[in-house]
Design a protein around this nucleic acid. Structure first.
Lengths: 337, 337
DNA sequence: TAAATTGATGACAACGTTGTCATTAATATG
DNA sequence: CATATTAATGACAACGTTGTCATCAATTTA
């Protein structure tokens, strides 16, 4: 391995001068600079970042935490769009991206305490995650792509407007004449899911509609879960004429279940998804859904973290709410009666 | 920041002894060990991995390279399954995962030269990638989830059996009576695509069928491309009765195009995909496709790399071919005539 | 002309670990 | 009992950088 010493010896200067050239610092004469640069490319020298990081006391790396206990998060189609947004921003800012699966037994705060990363982006952390406390104690700069609790405003977070999105879907359905609308929600230990419920309730209240018992069904963000919950919803004594699903995967499963039960979509039952993943328009019928800009979400999360890291003392926690958009396709139609 | 010195001072031993305790080395008396461990948890000491890595001369990190010039690779649904496989194996082996988008101007060999990673996993690198040479010169341990060239056997790689998979699909279609089968391939600068073509040609030859001009269409792994190519295929003077697509996304686009042109799928035209992504069974009709175990592919790639890194000198390059499986759903049916 | 300032450079410590080797005390061996 | 061996520990160098400060020559200022 070629080190800075080799370069120094070969170009007849001190290691400090080589360091100055490598880091593009001013106080080097043009001749010396050129001589050193020539030696560097001749020897193929590359600075050892580990040594550099040790001295400057940071790693130029950001950790991205993904819960692996809930497999669907990692495998969910929206996940790589967020990740891509994050990766691009980090790359533009010459930061590395350390991808880390959260297990229960490996507290991710260690990534910071052990100086592997300078900050963390947390994706879809469930409420009550035991690692959160250790994380706060460690003092790691941190941004969540979800709120950690509904009321929390001491953390940085970037969220889609889940409540607003569901409200949009409700407005759409209500304007089509639907009055019996069920919500196939995700796991209630996610704030994003609780916010969907909030939006659902807000819309009902606004239009003076009753909150029917058994119209809010809890499940997971998978097609299987959507399948199960849709079947369950239709067994309700007063079955709904429309379903709003926690995400598009659930919606796909729900549509399949409805078809199996002999319901036409959207003739008998309207179905609305959430996310607008790239396949939403290939389902049958093409899916009406609430679009969230997941790529942008990733970019914002990374930018917010970098800004916070640069200016830890003065920066107040940033809380960013991203707009959602109703994409009307063919899975929603006027209510029958 | 608490360092090893603080722990040493607080427990009245030398830093070397603390180091021994931290690294669970044998030659420490039980009493000393306990005393030190107590101080560690009392002070909340976490070793600085940067310093450690500097001394031991490795980073315990593996880089995963994803080309970002071809966006579809990153955004492709199969990608996170591979990544998850990789991430799990690395995590099990206490390695970190550095995710890196390949741009043209940032040669990824530097990740190794600069000691940021101990080895690399390359995903879907196109033929003629200018970074490959620098990578070989750097001597970085390396595994590709694709072959870099058809004939290359000096690199480690893990591949699905693309040729065999397409051959399976061909056998299936031929047994259903199809004789006019087109291949909607991906970009020809990927070895995996060339291997698909190879499988296609093998099957034709085996059954004494002619290679019809204009039946192999080049495109991208996107639904848009599938849409365009399917339309193009059906304009052929002797239009095909079946389409084999480079991946499921293309198949979704192709099915949509066929429907728009008034063809029934599978009554008029059979369509077969590749990958069996989780949504393949939600398309309409549910998609017949060649399944590849992408999660396993990720695991194998990571395991192969770790094995190679442990034993760089003796280990010959590993070349692993993973089986594919035909999943028969409803998008393929007997030929009409 | 002498003193002060500037520019270019290098010697050396520091970052927080681990590796090497020496030292000491306790134990085993002849 | 004297010597050899083992176990436990620590002093110090090393890893490859950057930061601090000193040095020296060249220039500017008074």
């Amino acid at each position: 391995m070629i080190t800075i010493k080799d370069v120094a010896r070969n170009s007849g200067v001190s290691i400090k001068t080589v360091s100055r050239v490598v880091n593009n610092q001013a106080e080097v004469s043009p001749e010396t600079r050129q001589k050193v640069q020539q030696t560097i490319s001749q020897l193929g020298y590359q600075p050892n970042m580990t040594a550099r990081n040790l001295v400057i006391g940071q790693s130029n790396t950001v950790g991205v935490i993904i819960p692996n206990s809930a497999d669907y998060v990692f495998l969910h189609p929206f996940f790589n769009e967020v990740l891509r947004g994050i990766a691009e921003v980090l790359s533009e800012n010459h930061f590395n991206l350390l991808l880390h699966l959260a297990h229960d037994d490996a507290p991710y705060a260690r990534l910071y305490s052990q100086r592997k990363v300078d900050g963390l982006i947390l994706m879809s952390i469930p409420i009550g995650d035991p690692n959160i406390q250790g994380l706060e104690e460690s003092g790691a700069p941190c941004v969540c792509t979800c709120r950690i609790s509904e009321t929390n405003n001491s953390t940085n977070w970037v969220d889609a407007d889940f409540a607003g999105g569901v409200e949009q879907a409700m407005e759409h359905l209500i304007s089509l004449g639907h009055r019996r609308i069920a919500l196939l929600a995700g796991t209630m230990n996610l704030v994003s899911v609780r916010l969907r419920v909030l939006g659902y309730q807000n819309a009902l209240r606004k239009h003076g509609l009753p909150v029917e018992d058994g119209y809010i069904l809890e499940g997971e963000f998978t097609s299987e879960s959507g399948h199960v919950l849709a079947a369950k919803a239709m067994k309700h004594p007063n079955p709904p004429s429309a379903l709003i699903c926690g995400d598009d995967m659930m919606a796909f499963g729900a549509i399949q279940a409805l078809k199996e039960l002999g319901y036409g979509v959207p003739e008998d039952v309207s179905v609305i998804g959430f996310d607008d993943i790239s396949l939403a328009r290939f389902s049958s019928p093409p899916l009406t859904t609430i679009r969230q800009d997941t790529y942008q979400k990733g970019r914002m999360a990374a930018e917010s973290l970098l800004a916070f890291m640069r200016d830890k003392h003065n920066a107040p926690p940033q809380q960013i709410l991203l707009d959602t958009f109703l994409i009307t396709r063919n899975s929603s139609a006027p209510a029958k009666n």
